[in-house]
Design a protein around this nucleic acid. Structure first.
Length: 593
RNA sequence: CGGGGCGUAGCGCAGAUUGGUAGCGCACUUGAAUGGGGUUCAAGAGGUCGGAGGUUCAAAUCCUCUCGCCCCGACCA
């Protein structure tokens, strides 16, 4: 491709809306154009990167038995009604009516249609296991798109679905997907960690998220360097500290003016926050036995030195959703906000959930349910009892690893892929069954596996750039080689030689971007740095006289001279070496039990 | 959905307080010089000032409503 003909435009100035590096560079390199919030045009350079990434998806999925299909973006509501997700999912799903007035939606994921497909084509155990995958547009009407391609509304996802005879079959297939996902990210040149994850609305028994560690990430991970334990903070567990053993002391009311926060309270009483109990009030949507949904006031008690974890609470009480309670709702159940106490409350009006550490921590200071007062020496069991005792606090820096006890630390990450053991939720709902060896009907056991290619592009740039621009790993670069001609009007022989090199490289199958523009050398070099093509060849008058072309690696700045006489084979060897450098990172990553 | 910010040419910005009919830099077009890290000079093209109402002789500027975009939070299969 000639730069003079490439449909793009580099920018010297950074568009004001772009805050993060990958967004800035994608815009400056002329790769994307925003059409609406979270909705983008992909220009030719970005499209080539997408194709490279998608080829890697296909390579890895095909290697473990995947077969590529294409499923529809516009789907009938009927399928989603069968699984209940038509109702369960809110305005993240874009809905529309067709001309006949039938309810339709834009695909935000494809479990329903794939399970429906399985009902039509899977009938025997002999057909299982099987895996289908597609690379297809998804639309999720995110409440807040952000950060360029990191969080978008319309995106391309590689989603795969496995079908197994039973849970054991899924358990056996799952590690292959786990490994394939690692391979994909390694081939794309990025390091990820797989963390245990919340199964959320997808349902299912086990899930992993593949996280790229970067400060721009929206997720927080708890990681143990000692033993390798890692989990999304939403589900991370840890060893609770051993509370001091002490005999319960008598309850005692104490005046504590202006101490509505734990920090104020601990400072006022001159005690550590670990000797206090913190009350948190939420409203949960709970599904009733009859299928209706009821709002329930939830009163949570955690130790003052810890933070409540809403995901854990959601799972413990099986809430559809949670939101903070407002002051009026807190007062309505007889609780004094800021001085809320699990003692002396309208127990029938609240669901009292107490963290398991609180139940063994003696003599905590808790609210007195009276403005300006707290109670000393509250003891679980003696003074109050809960509806539910469970682990509902969030892991934090320095907490003890649940596996080995060493200190955890937290880091930020971007979720670039996830894998779920779905089980039979969708197959039962859709009636996807097969006959086993005994002629008995069983639901297919499913798994679901996704990677967003758009976000992956952004993450690759986050991981591979410098002040001057992008540094594409050669496996995903839009072109392998950038040929910069320094020909001028006075050096037509340089232009002619550059044309010959360009033709030779193309004939040899090298992916080459040829800067044939009549621009100053500085402009070309700066654009080359910005675009980040891994191998840069520079042909100038001096080099041509000496029969050489200058080569520079974008990733490292290393440079050398290549002989024109052997340019094509030398370059092919270099491309192979650079590719091998990345492929070498594709290594076995066994799934931890 | 709550909080904050911003909409003037493809991009970055000025002009608004004090209304008088739009300007600068980059990019783009043409010409000339220059020619190994964003060179220089000259001449151009490009804007219903996000939109709709209103005030006024006159609105980018003042008032009302509205739409869009960004950031923080909530949310996130």
């Amino acid at each position: 491709m000639r730069v003079s003909k490439l449909f793009f435009q580099t920018l010297r100035e950074v568009p004001a809306d772009a805050d993060i590096v990958s967004h800035q560079l994608l815009l400056r390199a002329g790769m994307i154009h925003q059409v609406a919030a979270g909705i983008f045009d992909y220009l030719p350079l970005a499209q080539r990167v997408k194709h490279k990434i998608e080829d890697i998806f296909r390579l890895e999925m095909d290697a473990i038995g995947g077969q590529e299909v294409t499923l529809p973006v516009v789907q009938p509501a009927e399928l989603w009604q069968k699984t209940g997700r038509w109702q369960a999912i809110g305005s993240d799903m874009a809905r529309l009516k067709d001309r006949a007035g039938r309810d339709m939606c834009l695909a935000m994921t494809h479990e329903e249609v794939i399970a429906d497909l399985a009902t039509k084509f899977v009938s025997s155990y002999r057909q299982l296991p099987a895996m289908l995958y597609q690379i297809q547009t998804k639309f999720r009407d995110e409440p807040r798109p952000r950060a360029g391609l990191i969080r978008v509304r319309e995106f391309t996802m590689k989603d795969a679905y496995t079908f197994d005879r039973d849970q054991a079959g899924l358990d056996a297939y799952y590690p292959h997907l786990y490994q394939a996902y690692y391979n994909i990210f390694h081939r794309c040149g990025i390091e990820v960690v797989a963390v245990g994850a919340d199964v959320g609305m997808m349902g299912g028994s086990q899930a992993h998220e593949f996280m790229a560690l970067t400060p721009i990430g929206e997720d927080t991970l708890a990681i143990c360097d000692a033993c390798g334990y890692s989990a999304n903070r939403q589900v991370a567990t840890f060893r609770k500290p051993t509370p001091p053993s002490a005999a319960p002391l008598p309850l005692e009311e104490v005046a504590t003016p202006d101490t509505a926060t734990i920090a104020d309270l601990a400072a006022f009483l001159n005690i550590p926050t670990s000797e206090t109990a913190k009350a948190v009030f939420l409203i949960a949507d709970l599904e009733q036995p009859d299928g209706s949904v009821k709002e329930q006031f939830v009163f949570c008690v955690v130790r003052g030195d810890m933070e409540m974890n809403e995901t854990k609470l959601t799972n413990v009480i099986k809430a559809r959703r949670l939101r903070p309670a407002v002051v009026e709702e807190i007062l309505a159940v007889g609780v004094q906000a800021g001085y809320g106490s699990p003692l002396n409350i309208q127990r029938e009006a609240v669901l009292l959930v107490v963290d398991d550490l609180v139940t063994v921590s003696p003599n905590l200071v808790a609210g007195a349910n009276k403005a300006g007062y707290h109670m000393r020496n509250t003891n679980y069991g003696r003074d109050y009892t809960a509806d539910i005792v469970a682990d509902i606090v969030a892991a934090s820096d320095g907490y003890a690893c649940p596996v080995c006890g060493e200190a955890l630390h937290t880091v930020r990450g971007v979720e670039v892929g996830n894998i779920f053991k779905l089980g039979t939720k969708y197959s039962i709902a859709m009636g996807a069954t097969y006959l086993d060896e005994n002629g008995e009907s069983n639901p297919i056991v499913m798994g679901s596996y996704g990677i967003g290619s758009d976000r992956l592009i952004a993450v690759i740039i986050e991981m591979h750039h410098d002040d001057a621009g992008i540094q594409w790993p050669i496996t995903v670069a839009p072109y392998q080689v950038m040929l910069v001609s320094l020909a001028t009007e006075k050096t037509p022989e340089v232009a002619a030689a550059a044309e010959r090199i360009y033709a030779d490289l193309q004939a040899a199958g090298v992916e080459v971007l040829y800067d044939d523009r009549d621009e100053r050398a500085g402009v070309k070099f700066n654009d080359a740095d910005l675009l980040g093509i891994p191998i840069r060849l520079t042909l100038g008058g001096k080099g041509l006289k000496n029969g050489i072309v200058e080569m520079k690696l974008r990733r490292s700045g290393e440079s050398s001279e290549l002989q024109l006489a052997t340019l094509v084979p030398d370059l092919e060897a270099l491309i192979a070496a650079e590719t091998a450098r990345i492929q070498a990172k594709v290594v076995p990553m066994p799934l931890e039990a």
